[in-house]
């Protein structure tokens, strides 16, 4: 097997909690990302799922080095993104791009669509001569399914789905190898969401893109991903091939998460053996000892409080982080 395109190793991001304005005093630490490892191969889609506050969006920012990591490395083609001079990083930005969640705030309202999509060329002047920008922008708009004659319009003149396409066109301008999609379809209406999902799949097969697809919507992740990683409180608790994780989840959190998704099929509504979790996600400023999930877990024992489970292959046949891992079928 060839080396993965992106390798994330021991990634940690802690935010200090401070008090005071002039004399800041650190009173705690928010462990947003607390030791995350994963690989992303060329042309594949890795879905990263988890609930709000689990740290998945921070992972997105760390992979692009939009935030500095507290610890750990992100290798792109063997080079550590978090340990390279800014000049080199700027070059590397051409290879990894991001599509953000909110189609309303991710486009500068004072710029025309043409200027927005051409901005990558203006930033990386060596990519394309100025005369070619307009043609390239129009090609990009056409590629994402927009009318190329709309370059002089402003973002607010487009619907949410169309704006998201503009954001995708901007991300594609520099011909990247990796696209980080941070909740890229979550803000869209279902009928439009499907259009954008299909577009992303189309682009992947045309351009050979690798996606790090971050989302809270499990059905969307299931639909688009090759492999899936489940995050809880700053850690990956289970990772594997899509069908393995969805059909034969080993970690109790994954099982609860999957079983909680309401099925859009009323006939199945009753027969669902839904695992309803008690309580709330603990604060990442004060995570439980040992296994982070133990406070809501029905299997928890003393061992879970004392010993942190490693992410390794257990009963489920793919890596999970539960001492008492066992397969339970929750999706029918």
């Amino acid at each position: 097997m060839t080396e993965p395109l992106v390798q994330v190793r021991g990634l940690v991001k802690h935010y200090p909690l401070t008090r005071g304005i002039v004399f800041k005093k650190q009173v705690g630490t928010v462990r947003a990302v607390d030791g995350v490892d994963f690989d992303l191969a060329s042309g594949e889609t890795l879905g990263l799922v988890g609930e709000s506050g689990c740290g998945k969006s921070t992972v997105a920012k760390l992979v692009l080095r939009l935030e500095e990591a507290t610890e750990g490395q992100v290798f792109f083609e063997g080079e550590d993104i978090h340990d390279m001079p800014h000049g080199r990083l700027r070059e590397l930005r051409r290879q990894i791009q991001i599509v953000l969640q909110d189609p309303y705030s991710s486009l500068n309202p004072r710029m025309t669509v043409g200027d927005i999509v051409a901005e990558p060329f203006a930033v990386h002047r060596s990519v394309a001569p100025r005369e070619s920008w307009r043609r390239r922008v129009q090609d990009l708009l056409e590629r994402v399914g927009l009318d190329p004659d709309h370059v002089n319009r402003y973002p607010h003149q487009f619907s949410g789905g169309q704006r998201q396409r503009i954001g995708i066109a901007r991300a594609l301008a520099l011909d990247p190898q990796v696209l980080v999609c941070d909740e890229a379809v979550s803000a869209l209406d279902v009928s439009v969401q499907a259009q954008v999902i299909n577009l992303l799949r189309q682009l992947q097969s045309d351009l050979g893109l690798a996606y790090l697809f971050i989302a809270h919507d499990l059905s969307v992740v299931r639909h688009i991903s090759d492999r899936v990683a489940v995050m809880y409180l700053g850690k990956i608790v289970e990772v594997g091939e899509r069908s393995d994780v969805f059909r034969e989840p080993g970690h109790p959190y994954t099982q609860a998460l999957l079983s909680a998704v309401p099925s859009p099929d009323p006939r199945k509504a009753g027969e669902n053996d839904r695992i309803v979790l008690e309580g709330d996600v603990p604060s990442p400023a004060d995570p439980p000892s040992g296994c982070h999930f133990r406070t809501r877990c029905w299997k928890a024992t003393e061992r879970c409080a004392a010993e942190e489970p490693a992410l390794e292959v257990r009963a489920a046949g793919h890596p999970d982080a539960c001492h008492f891992s066992e397969i339970r079928h929750v999706v029918r």
Binding site: L64, L66, L89, R90, E91, R93, R94, Q97, I98, L100, Q101, D102, S105, S106, L107, N108, P109, R110, M111, E119, P120, A122, V123, H124, G167, R170, A171, L174
Partner: peptide
């Protein structure tokens, strides 16, 4: 902290350009 500034930073945009093109006009 708006997303379009984040997107600009992800493109490798210089601080000066971010300030003049994205932040000041808004």
């Amino acid at each position: 902290d708006s997303d379009y500034v984040l997107a600009a930073r992800a493109l490798g945009t210089s601080d000066f350009r971010i300030l003049t093109r994205h932040i000041l006009p808004n």
